[in-house]
């Protein structure tokens, strides 16, 4: 199973907030395997979608030089279900950040109705890692770059002053050729 629980970012403002959509489709395996007679998206996967939305926002604070670790859901709740044909719209807002981790608030809506809500903590794997060792343990920078591009982070991403996010400003995922 592909572990991508967001289809596309629709807004990404560094250090502030991000919105993303997830279109629920009958062709996804989990809908057949969870409750075959009643296809709904498992809430655990919705939680993962909220974590991916907030996690990439947090990872950007650290220049995408490492993948942050989902450490804790302080709060997580749902109202109703997401069914095939639904589009979940997530909005993640950065609450607080430090060198060791950060917290985000994420809400999900379906057609304007509240659907999910969470407060999520992310920890840095090793805040004291060096440029040479950073991130290597958990992920391949090329995979992260491909993911960010595929979900449109650099298409919609801006800084708080409105200037565009540029891939080449993130050397860990976009090495400058020597």
């Amino acid at each position: 199973m592909r572990w991508f629980w967001l289809d596309r970012f629709t807004e990404f403002v560094t250090g502030s907030h991000a919105t993303a959509v997830k279109c629920v489709s009958m062709s996804e395996d989990h809908l057949a395997e969870h409750m075959p007679a009643y296809p709904i998206m498992p809430h655990s996967l919705v939680a993962e979608g909220m974590a991916q939305c907030g996690g990439l926002l947090v990872s950007e604070i650290y220049k995408f030089s490492e993948l942050v670790v989902l450490a804790k859901f302080s709060r997580c709740g749902f109202e109703g279900h997401a069914r095939p044909g639904d589009t979940i719209c997530y909005r993640a807002a950065l609450e607080q950040a430090k060198d060791v981790g950060a917290s985000v608030q994420v809400k999900g809506e379906i057609a304007g109705r509240p659907f999910s809500e969470a407060e999520i903590f992310f920890a840095r794997f090793d805040p004291e890692s060096t440029e040479a060792t950073r991130g290597r343990v958990l992920f391949n920078p090329n995979d992260l770059r491909a993911w960010l591009i595929a979900v449109g982070v650099f298409q919609v991403g801006v800084r708080p002053d409105g200037s565009r996010m540029r891939l080449e400003e993130y050397p860990h995922i976009c090495p400058i050729p020597k």
Binding site: D99, F121, A123
Partner: peptide, 21 residues
């Protein structure tokens, strides 16, 4: 251990203080 970061964030917010690592 991760709860300590959560607690630190909440104390900072509740009391308007800055708690260093």
């Amino acid at each position: 251990s991760i709860d300590f970061l959560d607690i630190v964030f909440r104390l900072e917010k509740a009391f308007g203080i800055k708690i260093e690592r």
